[in-house]
Design a protein around this nucleic acid. Structure first.
Lengths: 199, 199, 199, 199
DNA sequence: TTTTAAACGAGACGGTACGTCAAGTCTTAAT
DNA sequence: ATTAAGACTTGACGTACCGTCTCGTTTAAAA
């Protein structure tokens, strides 16, 4: 049985990597709007056409660059489930806090955010490929807690996830205050307090 | 934004207005990155130099344009206080929901958001001039409720405000779901549930 | 003018021609100082950068444009030598008179003159490439006459050429009088009279 | 009969002088095309409007500036007439050579030349006010020599003047060779040789 | 193993917008 | 009423990138 791969993978992987790396570096250095395909090509040692051949816009390049990053360390599809909902969510929130305080991550994510704000199609893809998956993972953990009776039965789990993570992301984006584990804890405690069954 | 009005602002007010109006219109039409000072000047019937004379960047122009808008209708410095915290906050949240669903507001605010993400100094100014003021107004209402015993004494009021409004803003920015009064109500109810005194 | 043709002149000849043509036309229409690279590019249907890529200034463009003109019809490297010096020089002078009275030539040469007055380097190049060559051709004819005994032995031939052609060019530049064959003849006769061997 | 002095407007003579001085300086420093009214006004400590009120163009300002210079030292209306034509003309030519080699004079005169090449009306005025007057002065001296029998009777005196001064001016403008007293002498001797009565 | 077609680096091209400089006009305040 | 100052609209400057389009030159698959 010969090659079924006959399709068209005649693509230079080294160039692809160089482009994504350069895009990420430059986004961190100069920000999204000053990021230029010309500069990416130059930094990557690549012809401009090689970028235009495989990506429709600088937003798409940056998107792939961040996606590549995230895909590496994000093989996990579930949250820990120790039975203690608050502890499990705290673990995740603290990890998020750490990321948001990492300058490299901060800058490239801000650039990506701009890209997504500017390109609705890309934003949809981002949701489909990353955001929604991560959302579902958290929702699953809440559902498990709901079944265990730690969360009220009538709670809208989508809203619940957003209540726990939304304030943190919002503070990060607007820099309206420091991103600390304590802040995350406060949000988490209060939110869970509101979600708990009454009676 | 510069506004050294005191001395002698030999400045053409008509041009200033035309520039802000044009900036807002164009930001709504083409988005932030495709917004150009050249186009603003043309639409406003103004020389480019008149823009560069008074603003350092297109971000600053857009900032002032949005600021002018907000300053007009935002003379109010307090939230309604009927004694019913949930009802009062619902009023504000529903107004916010209405704004976020207005295409004109949506687009210019998204553009402004990009501007603020790209220009840290401007973001600081935005917080000082608008965000913080609005935050304080909401915090005041919560403080009043806390004094009335409707909110637990140990609650961090900054976090409380962010819990009520953060998820909504986040859903708007990331388009992770529809912005409806019902969604706002769900967040509000759950959040207040968590904030209420226990016992 | 740059013309490193040897290696790899990945250069669009059609654009080059269009630029030179447009430059010449516009110089004739609006004069040198009102001539703009922007207008040349527009008239030639070319991006500005294409001009800046190959020429350092509008003076250089105009220079090349005139050079191209002159190179075409100026293949001749010698003056006629019928043995009658006065007749031979008269032929050349009358041709010059005709050119100077041609509005098209007049205007572009005046523009070029301004360009050369403003750019010393270009002026040097002009002398090297055109003026000196033409000067030598005339000097050669005078030398031949000197050998034939029609011009005094101690005459400085450079000065002689300038005496015959200088007054004409000067009258043209300063518009101090009409440029006629008769005027040229007067100068020529008197000059030759002064150059003839005495005895 | 009241004041007949109603003639000229109340014009600030100090500003006028400052403008002409600044124009001359700047023309010498940066050349004609880079000379700007803005810079003249700044250097002269004068409002731009004051220049525009009294002159129609930078060419006119420069013209007046040079005119003022020339009028100062050019009160003389005749050439010396010692009876020795060659000696008298040599005096004048050597003075001209000295001027042309003075960098300040050289640069401002080159700038003025550009101005005159670009503005035909100004060129006419220049001829009327300066060039023609100087031409007549020289022509007068030649006429005197003609009457004394040192110049042939049938000589066209206009052409004669141009033969003596044209080559020098032309060499200056085109920088086709050094401007030396010896060169001037050669031209003068040869020209006078051609102008002398034959027989 | 040779052929051959794509992907590649390089970079010129027609354009748009940048941010700056100066033009010439107009307004204000001081003399 | 003239001036110094300087804001205004206009237009050109020279530069940076855009996205498209050749150029030769690898390079890896099919022949």
């Amino acid at each position: 049985m010969p090659q079924t791969t006959a399709e068209r993978p005649r693509r230079n992987e080294k160039s692809r990597q160089a482009i994504l790396t350069a895009a990420l570096q430059l986004a961190g250095e100069v920000g999204y709007t000053k990021l230029s395909i010309e500069a990416i090509a130059a930094r990557a040692g690549v012809g401009k056409q090689t970028i235009y051949r495989w990506w429709p816009s600088k937003a798409a390049v940056l998107f792939d660059a961040v996606l590549a990053l995230s895909t590496n360390d994000a093989g996990e599809t579930t949250l820990p489930d120790t039975g203690d909902l608050e502890a499990d969510l705290r673990t995740v929130l603290h990890a998020t806090v750490r990321e948001l305080n990492d300058p490299g991550y901060d800058r490239s994510m801000r650039s990506l955010t701009v890209a997504l704000l500017e390109d609705e199609g890309l934003a949809a893809e981002y949701r489909r490929n990353l955001a929604q998956r991560m959302h579902e993972v958290k929702k699953d953990r809440l559902r498990s807690a709901q079944l265990a009776g730690h969360v009220a039965e009538d709670v809208d789990l989508d809203a619940a996830v957003e209540m726990i993570f939304g304030p943190l992301m919002n503070r990060w984006l607007t820099r309206s205050g420091p991103i600390t584990p304590e802040y995350a804890d406060t949000i988490l405690t209060t939110a869970l307090n509101g979600l708990r069954p009454r009676g």
